[in-house]
Design a protein around this nucleic acid. Sequence first.
DNA 1: CTGACTGCAAACGTTTTGCACGGTA
DNA 2: TACCGTGCAAAACGTTTGCAGTCAG
Lengths: 140, 140
Amino acid sequence: MNEYITNILKEYDLKVTPQRMCIVEELMKHGHLTIEELFEKISNKFPSLSLATVYKNINAMMEKNFIKEVKIPNRKSKYELIKEEHAHIICEKCGRVEDINIDKKDIVKEIEDKTSYKIEHTALIFSGLCPECAKESEAA
Amino acid sequence: MNEYITNILKEYDLKVTPQRMCIVEELMKHGHLTIEELFEKISNKFPSLSLATVYKNINAMMEKNFIKEVKIPNRKSKYELIKEEHAHIICEKCGRVEDINIDKKDIVKEIEDKTSYKIEHTALIFSGLCPECAKESEAA
DNA sequence: CTGACTGCAAACGTTTTGCACGGTA
DNA sequence: TACCGTGCAAAACGTTTGCAGTCAG
């Protein structure tokens, strides 16, 4: 596992440090985290960690196109490892974020035809109630 | 025109002030503006305008569900008057933002089935090169 | 006339920066 | 060893707040 993360960091031309390993590990484990959440989680294992270090590393990793920011309506941004482009679904109540893969080529085609833009990227967020929060609402 | 804006503000329970009229007018004229852009544009007509006033009004208008924030990848947020929910297309080069209406019910249905979420809102951003910027790139 | 809005300045939270030290390659 | 990353503290930045004066209703 450690070796795995080490290799990923090297692939992206990022020097391997314990702090960076932790950041990647947490992102792999949780998928999407805010700066704050990252800082808190890593501080546990690593009490000397500085917030500035988290920021510097997040920025470094974004420059290398290794992670990216997910801007979420009404909430703080989260960060995720970059993989194939996908949409997100957010629970408006509990704030959990999940990846979803959808087939967007028809819509992209439709928009390209309609607007004459050449579409390169998408940032698609769907939001509502997750099944758990929906259950709670019913109960109440 | 002034009377028109006056009435809209009243509908949303917002007291009518010259500063607010300007904000609405600029948003109607340009569609999407950052806080900075709003401040600069209005300052021209209205040199005494305070940035704090812009912020306070933007927040007041968001509370009344009269305008909303559009979070854009790699750029500052813009604000727009609320109308029927729609997607946005952004030029990654010049930053222009345009509204697009797409039929999303199939996709929403697909995601609801797949995830068991009840989807309430969407924030869909497509990005790429606008026709003008595409032309420039070719020329170069 | 009353409460809400404005402008200013101060406060606040978040993010960035500079620097001395320590660790990676 | 040379350079990059870290941690700390200070600075910068965007946004919010408090207050006194003004304006809309």
